[in-house]
Write a protein that binds this DNA or RNA. Structure first.
Length: 300
DNA sequence: AAGATCAGCAACCGCCTCGCT
DNA sequence: AAGCGAGGCGGTTGCTGATCT
């Protein structure tokens, strides 16, 4: 037996919103607020819409200070950096871009930014041609033992190419998650950069969790471990400011990595167990009250 | 000029999480 | 502890205007 629908679908209007509906919704919310109950709102506002539809319309279009279109280079960069670090967590990405909605960013990424980054010319019209080109990109990369990647996006470029190089379906897990997603890269000088994406809601009373906050209860850690692959203790935990800097860093780097080494690290099996052998599924003593949540962050 | 194809984007769908009972 | 309902999120769909042939 499936879940009961959130509204009576037969008596609910679907499709594009009319200016009149927009006006009604806007007026109601400005006057009374959402009341913390979107399901009841359309009825109160005299709208024949699903509560979820009202919520979406308000958040993505009607709410004040929404920006549409014309993403700036800075915004492009932020999106790329964040996508590289946390994947398609559009709501978190949107929280870093004032006035932008998750839907807008998602659409922008899917329609423009992805092509811009990976060099698919927008003039390419025929889908089968695009597909062929993309497949060629995958196979040529996968068939090469060592890959050079040069991008003005440096860190994030390295990671994004990583997604491309790993043609494995997105894993999703339901809570409780095995904690921690490891990203390890070998950069040109043979040092290793390790990025440890761990979504944690942490209530350490001493505030000892070295975390960057993304949204209300989602946090990430970025750690650069240099060449030393040791235990978790060897992590050089970045403070929020440094980590943020690292995350949002631009700069230039030509990166080179050995696919044989990287592939196992990015395969779904190894995302869940870390290369240091530490049991990340159980909280460390330090972060004894941390818990994992959310979805995996790898694509392709 | 007209039909075919494509790109962009608004909106929907269904799953997951969380809070309440 | 279990069940339920609402909110939130990411993936996908489908419409529309633009561009191509």
């Amino acid at each position: 037996m499936g879940r009961a629908p959130c509204c009576d679908k037969a008596n609910v209007k679907k499709g594009p919103w009319s200016p009149e509906e927009d006006r009604q919704l806007k007026e109601y919310i400005e006057k009374y607020g959402t009341g913390g109950n979107w399901i009841a709102l359309p009825h109160k506002a005299g709208l024949k819409r699903c509560g979820k539809s009202c919520r979406l319309r308000w958040l993505n279009y009607l709410r004040p200070n929404i920006k549409h279109g014309d993403f700036t280079d800075t915004e492009d960069r932020m999106i790329c950096n964040l996508y590289a670090s946390i994947g398609s967590r559009w709501s978190i990405i949107a929280s870093h871009l004032p006035g932008r909605t998750d839907n807008d960013i998602k659409n922008y990424w899917n329609t423009k930014l992805k092509k811009k980054l990976f060099g698919f010319p927008s003039s390419q019209r025929k889908p089968h041609q695009q597909q062929q080109q993309q497949q060629h990109l995958f196979s040529s990369n996968l068939g090469t033992r060592s890959v050079s990647f040069s991008s003005p996006l440096s860190l994030e470029g390295m990671q994004i190419s990583h997604y491309l190089l790993n043609p494995i379906a997105t894993p999703t897990f339901s809570s409780p998650l095995p904690q921690g997603s490891m990203h390890q890269y070998r950069v040109k000088d043979n040092s290793s950069l390790l990025m440890f994406g761990s979504e944690q809601s942490c209530s350490s009373s001493d505030g000892s969790c070295n975390q960057i906050s993304y949204g209300s209860n989602v946090d990430y850690e970025l750690c650069n471990v240099g060449q030393q692959m040791g235990s978790l203790d060897s992590f050089l935990h970045c403070g929020s400011a440094e980590a943020e800097k690292l995350l949002l860093a631009g700069g230039e780097a030509s990166l080179e990595y050995n696919m044989d080494e990287i592939k196992p690290l990015v395969s779904p099996i190894n995302w869940y167990s870390n290369p240091f052998g530490d049991d990340l599924s159980s909280p460390t003593a330090k972060d004894s009250s941390c818990k994992s949540q959310g979805r995996a962050m790898y694509y392709y």
